[in-house]
């Protein structure tokens, strides 16, 4: 699909999210909800006392019953629908050919962990903070943009062996 058209449609869905729910599109927030809910289920006392969890448990609903969690469930459904139509549903490891599978998976694990930490510290990830923040012209979205993409271009050279 034309990249700009896809972007415009994503922008439209973001506006709908703001109009109906007052929420931006997001992803890492839902992963956090899953983490909070699972810690709460395993050890409720700990979750009620540690300051990271305290603010997020103890509501009338499970911490996993949030708008973002359901939005991400929708993302899962939407991605599967699109991939099914385009014939892209296939089990594989996405990587450049010169990288071994093991190397790629270790890199993905480390990258994921860094993204997890960064998104919590930075109050949101690429979609939740930067893209949705830019939509409402929040300064924080543009700072995040500089951090992620500006930072990416600075360090890209050192990790070029992973990709090219």
């Amino acid at each position: 699909m034309n990249s700009y058209l896809a972007g415009i449609f994503i922008g439209l869905f973001m506006v709908l999210a703001y109009y109906f729910s007052g929420e931006g599109l997001g992803a890492s927030g839902a992963l956090k909800s899953v983490v909070v809910a699972s810690v709460d289920a395993v050890n409720h006392d700990y979750a009620s006392n540690a300051s990271f969890f305290k603010a997020r448990v103890g509501g009338e609903h499970s911490p996993a019953k949030t708008w973002l969690v359901f939005e991400v469930l929708g993302v899962i459904a939407g991605a599967i629908i699109s991939a099914a139509f385009a014939g892209r549903l296939k089990i594989e490891i996405g990587k450049p050919t010169h990288i071994t599978n093991k190397k790629r998976l270790i890199a993905a694990l480390i990258g994921g962990a860094l993204f997890g930490i960064g998104s919590q510290l930075g109050r949101g990830c690429t979609s939740g903070m930067v893209m949705s923040g830019m939509g409402v012209l929040s300064l924080s979205g543009f700072i995040g943009l500089i951090g992620i993409f500006g930072g990416g271009y600075i360090i890209a050279y050192f990790f070029r062996k992973l990709w090219i």
């Binding site: 599109l25 997001g26 992803a27 890492s28 992963l31 993302v75 996405g94 890199a107 993905a108 694990l109 480390i110 990258g111 994921g112 962990a113 860094l114 993204f115 997890g116 930490i117 960064g118 998104s119 919590q120 510290l121 930075g122 109050r123 990830c125 690429t126 979609s127 903070m129 930067v130 924080s140 700072i143 995040g144 943009l145 500089i146 951090g147 992620i148 993409f149 500006g150 930072g151 990416g152 600075i154 360090i155 890209a156 990790f159 992973l162 990709w163």
Partner: peptide
């Protein structure tokens, strides 16, 4: 924290090749 977090996410992006969404 947004700038530092963004920078950490930049590492995550380049090493891991994805963002959460």
């Amino acid at each position: 924290p947004t700038l530092i977090g963004g920078f950490i996410m930049a590492f995550g992006f380049i090493i891991g090749g994805f963002c959460p969404g």
